[in-house]
Design a protein around this nucleic acid. Structure first.
Lengths: 163, 163
DNA sequence: TTCGAATTGCGATACAGCATAACTATTCGG
DNA sequence: CCGAATAGTTATGCTGTATCGCAATTCGAA
């Protein structure tokens, strides 16, 4: 926002650039379309949650803690595919914001049990509402509930590729 | 590979960590499943192309040039959603490897026209074979051809969210 | 035709996401 | 009891992507 003339790409929505580029070879690739779709959906998600200063990963962590209160950092992190080392500052940030607390575990002095604070619970309740609205937008794009279920099933099947 | 004791996450495939973590709230989210599926598919893709030292983005760029020879850097970059500034070293690398050449454009001395070299063409032909095998693996996971078409359609619909 | 605006390619950064290595404190297993 | 494994942490690097600015060139409207 420092530049007056807005010469950047964003300033030229569609028409600019060059002549038509044919990407049919790529648009037939599941991986390519998967990536584009993921970016688009995340873009909508990020935009929706921007006022709350929450990113998709953060929403996932909070939701995981909500559904599994008292679980250790390692357990939550692993379930979400996040490295323990990178998980630390995520939780640091949540504690700074008073959304999450680390508590001592009874039988294990190494582990931290994670809990949502009262603030965290009410804040997350708000976030869930935003998620509902976001998900409704997605649903509208893909058809009815059976279409949505079918898509979720296909995506889960693709995820199994690595397992 | 420097560490002898392999204490890391990868060493404990599934059983380790903690108790079961319930993520049903998340697994019902299109965005979440989309991301997981994209990671899994890209993982297969990257693994398949590793012997050729080619990453998904690079395959996309080469394929775009193949289908649109003589197009400018800006045109190709924009069509793939890559910033012009970041596109430069991508092409630098391809020129270093003798896969792509930048040529002068007749009517515009600012622009570079991109072409595959002979080497680039035959190399890409090899890559296409690898892609076919990769895509076959994906297809096997999602069902028959009509399922594949349906999935591509849904993903394209999701991509439209931003447009 | 002339001049400001826009475009092209390029370089220099900045920053987030993700991975690895190494350390301490603690717990577990034989 | 003691070596191996685990939990949390810190430091660090790599990669992808976004931002800013610049020089050369082209475009467009007065």
């Amino acid at each position: 926002m420092t530049d007056e003339t807005l010469t950047e790409d964003e300033a030229a929505p569609r028409a600019a650039g060059g002549q038509e580029i044919d990407l049919t070879k790529l648009t037939d690739l599941i991986g390519y379309q998967l990536r584009r779709a993921q970016i688009a959906v995340f873009d909508d998600f990020i935009r929706s949650f921007a006022p709350y200063d929450i990113r998709p990963t953060q929403y996932g962590v909070l939701t995981a803690i909500e559904g599994n209160p008292g679980s250790s950092q390692a357990a939550i992190a692993q379930s979400l595919g996040i490295k323990r080392s990178n998980f630390v500052k995520l939780i640091d940030e949540f504690e700074r914001r008073k959304l999450v607390v680390r508590k001592a575990v009874a039988g294990d002095r190494r582990a931290n049990a994670l809990f949502l604070t009262k603030t965290g619970q009410s804040e997350l309740a708000e976030l869930h509402k935003v998620r509902i609205a976001h998900e409704a937008r997605i649903a509208a794009a893909i058809g009815d509930e059976s279409d949505r279920r079918a898509l979720l099933g296909q995506l889960a099947r693709l995820t199994m590729l690595k397992g």
